[in-house]
Structures are given as structure tokens and as C-alpha cells.
Write a protein that binds this DNA or RNA. Structure first.
Lengths: 245, 245
DNA sequence: TGCAACCCTGTAACACTGTTACAGCCAGAC
DNA sequence: GTCTGGCTGTAACAGTGTTACAGGGTTGCA
């Protein structure tokens, strides 16, 4: 429901649709690079994407507005729309870029458990190193894409460990859910306000009985330890004996 | 930076600040209920909150706009602002409401492991039954609040299981992270587009070697099974022997 | 040379968003 | 009566995504 519905009745060109590439097919056309093949283009699709990526890095996907982007490039908004078609399409393209940039995951360790754990750890690190990726996938609802690199490695490792078929899918998904869910939450918990009054009251009550517990509950948890604990438990369980029944 | 900075120079009243209750103190003032103590109020703070809650239930926190809310109540926007002060304050109030509505968690089972697992399950169910809660906490960045009911139950159960101090905090947090992260991800994965072309290509490649795995990877995973698997593994690990040093 | 086609850009607008300065109504208090 | 405070409305500011439309510049073709 965009760009294609020309409401008919366009005088000149029948239906001059923007969006040169509706996401997916960057053809040989490439309006870029080559100096100026036609009407002296002031910006390039790549330039738009580069600048957009910078803005996202600086202030998150939410901080990216088409007008700001245009202003940054010294161009009118319509140019942006001509090159990338859409804000959603723009964000999708950025997601794909970051994904390409991430590449594969290095697997370490000798035992299957160690190797799989290393994948989970590396995957989390990769995502955390790209905070803008999280903000991108969350705004576009493409959360599953940020698990892609690890997915490939996990499938390979579980197969090598002798896990196949449905059980392998379950195992891969279990580890993936752990990583993605953990990272998603972890990113959201940083910089949260000190919570409500009723929460504080309860913490005080706990502290009266077990001061060490109270202190540990209020102070920010050690994400690394929590992550390792959970991953280790899950991997052990997955590689262990087949569950009864 | 709102409502208080009157830019000085207000002719009549020195600084007529709105926001009757800056979140936290709903005093005896209660401009509500009592028929009409003053100038026939057309709406009530509670009425505003009720309608806002309904709109959030219908179309998520993102779908709640101050103008829509005002229109729904047949009032001008300024009335909304007078009653609740702010959009953020409004959402915070709604979060608190839902939290109150959730109440405590019923713990079942006899063994510590069973009881703790039941808390995790019940917590997840409680949150999933209130999709609007997730949309609310996510927009306000108050993710930790949605874990509050389970937190209290977990502290109690781990204490009963003989886990205290720092180790108890770690255990509680581990389970909480599992629940919250899982639910957060689970909510986000529903209704995702069929992913990109490169993803499909990879899936095809996998299917060639292990058709059953390929099929299971594309079809939506069984969230219940995944959740139980992870929680079970984590709880077993937590209640097991103290990790070596 | 003229001319048409195409690429790309700019102007200006629509419909929305959160928020606020300001004026005003109305009931009760004095 | 006047005054005060609770509550509401009008209209505006600044910002958002998006698009209809006009136009300029370069290319290819007759």
C-alpha cells in the first residue's frame, strides 16, 4: 500500500513508481558511483544508506527521521524517498547490511558442549557489539534475523554431535531463544529507573531477613554469569540423555 | 522538563502547574466520583485511565494517542493533560494498574524444583495473558516491572530450598531473566514476515540433508516445550551441587 | 538540430503525533 | 456581589511519514 497505488489519472508517465528496487533486487542499474550517468544526482542510494546507518548508530532507529536524514545530506525529503522508497524499506535494508557485516561465527572448543556454548557466547557478543542492530530489528519486528549467524553454526554443531531431525531443531531453537531473549532483555534493562515505591518497600523487607540477598537483588546483576549459567544448563540438558517417553 | 518550566511571566496565577499527582501520590483530593464538587467535570482521572487502558488493549501502547483518547471521551486534549499530566505518566499509571491487577502467583508442587518451575510457568502465563502489559513496559522501558510478582515468590521458594545470600539472588535473577527474556522474544516473533531470500536459501540447503530438520526449523517452534526445557534445565542446575569454586 | 524520455530533485501540502499558552465557563466560598 | 480554583476549549508550535506535482538536467534518438 505504498508507491504502487498511483490513484490513477497521472497526466504524463502512466505510473512513475519510485522505489527503484523494492528490496531484494539491486540490479545492474546501480545509479551510484559512476560520477554522474544522468541528471547529476546529488546523492546516491549508498550515500543515503550510509548516512542513515550513521544516524541510527548515533541515536538509534527511533532517532532516524526522513527529514533529518535529508537535511544531513543537504537534499529534500523526496530524494530520500526516491532512492529508498520508504522508511520501512530503508530500515530493512540497514538490517540486511548489518547482517552481512556480521558474517559467520567462530566456533571454539573440542567437546560438543564446549563448541555449542562458544557459539552462544559469540552470538551474544556479536549482537551486543551492535546495539543499533537490536534497535533496528525491534522497530521492524525482525527479531529472528539477529539470530541468523548463530543458527547456521548451531545446526552444524548439533549435527556433528549426533543430534538430527526434530530433536536438532528443538535444540537449535532452545539455544537461540536463550541467546536472543537474554540479549533483548539485557539491552532493555540497562538504565532503567529505580522502580516504584512498592518495589523499594519489598526490597527493604527482604533485606531485613537476608541483607546479602537484598543487596544483590538491587545491584545490577552480572549478565555474563547469568548468561553462562543458563546456556550451560540448557546445553547440558540438550546433549544429555534423551528425555523419557 | 515538563509542566514546571512555565517560562516565567505568567500574568495571573504565578505558576498554575497541571499534573495534580506527579505519579505516586493519589491524595484525598480525588476530583472523582462525588457527583460534581466543582465546575461539573466532564471526565474523571479514572475515566481517562479506563479509556486509555481500553485503547491500549485494543491497539497496543503505540496505538494510544492523546487526541484519540480525548475524542473517545468527547473532550478536548487539554483535559486529558490536566488529569494525567503527560503521556509517559499516563502509561506509567497504566503499568501500575496492570501490575496491581496481576496480584500474587500461585505456587504448586512439593519439591523445590517443581515449585520453582511452577512459578516460572505461572509467571509466563500471566504475562502472556496480558499482551498490553508487554507493549506498555516496552514503550516505557520498564521491563523489570513485569517480573515483579514472580520475583517475590521466587525469593520465598529459594529461601525454603535452602538457598540464601548472593547465590539466592543469582538464582532468582537467572529464572527471571529466563522468563522475561523468553516472553519478550516470544511476543516479538509472532507474525513475523517469512524472512529474507538468503534465509530461505539456507533453509533449503539444510532441508536437502535433513528434511525433518528443515521442516521443523521453518515451522513455528513449540514455545511451551522450549520454555519448559530451558526452565527445567536452569532450575536443576541451580538446585544442584554448588559449582566448584 | 530538435525532441522526447528518463533520472532526480524541490515545493508544498495532508494527516498525523505530543505539548502548551491562553481564555473562559461554572460552582462554591466569602 | 466578587473572587478563587477546578476544569475545559481554541489554537497554535514543532515534529513525524508520505505523496501529488512541477521542473531541471542529461541522455539517446530522429
Amino acid at each position: 500500500m505504498s508507491a504502487m497505488d498511483g490513484t490513477g489519472a497521472t497526466p504524463k508517465g502512466t505510473a512513475a513508481r519510485p522505489t527503484p528496487s523494492p528490496t531484494g533486487t539491486p540490479p545492474t542499474r546501480t545509479p551510484a558511483a559512476g560520477a554522474s550517468p544522468a541528471g547529476t544526482p546529488r546523492v546516491t542510494r549508498d550515500a543515503v544508506l550510509d548516512t542513515a546507518m550513521r544516524l541510527v548508530r548515533e541515536s538509534g532507529a527511533q532517532g532516524l527521521s526522513m527529514r533529518k536524514l535529508a537535511a544531513e545530506l543537504g537534499v529534500a525529503v523526496t530524494s530520500i524517498y526516491w532512492h529508498v522508497g520508504n522508511r520501512e524499506a530503508l530500515l530493512d535494508e540497514l538490517v540486511e547490511r548489518v547482517l552481512r557485516d556480521m558474517g559467520a561465527i567462530r566456533v571454539r572448543g573440542r567437546t560438543p558442549a564446549a563448541r555449542i556454548t562458544s557459539i552462544a557466547r559469540a552470538s551474544r557478543r556479536m549482537i551486543l557489539e551492535r546495539p543499533h542492530l537490536i534497535s533496528l530489528v525491534r522497530e521492524r519486528g525482525l527479531d529472528s534475523l539477529m539470530m541468523l549467524p548463530a543458527r547456521k553454526a548451531l545446526v552444524r554443531e548439533f549435527a556433528a554431535a549426533g543430534v538430527h531431525g526434530r530433536r536438532a531443531a528443538l535444540a537449535v531453537q532452545a539455544v537461540q531463544y536463550q541467546v536472543a531473549g537474554f540479549v533483548l532483555l539485557e539491552r532493555n534493562l540497562t538504565g532503567e529507573p529505580p522502580a516504584l515505591a512498592q518495589v523499594q518497600a519489598w526490597v527493604d523487607e527482604v533485606s531485613a531477613k537476608d541483607p546479602e540477598l537484598g543487596r544483590a537483588l538491587t545491584s545490577p546483576p552480572d549478565a555474563d554469569t547469568l548468561f553462562d549459567l543458563a546456556v550451560h544448563a540448557i546445553v547440558e540438558s540438550l546433549l544429555g540423555p534423551e528425555p523419557g517417553s
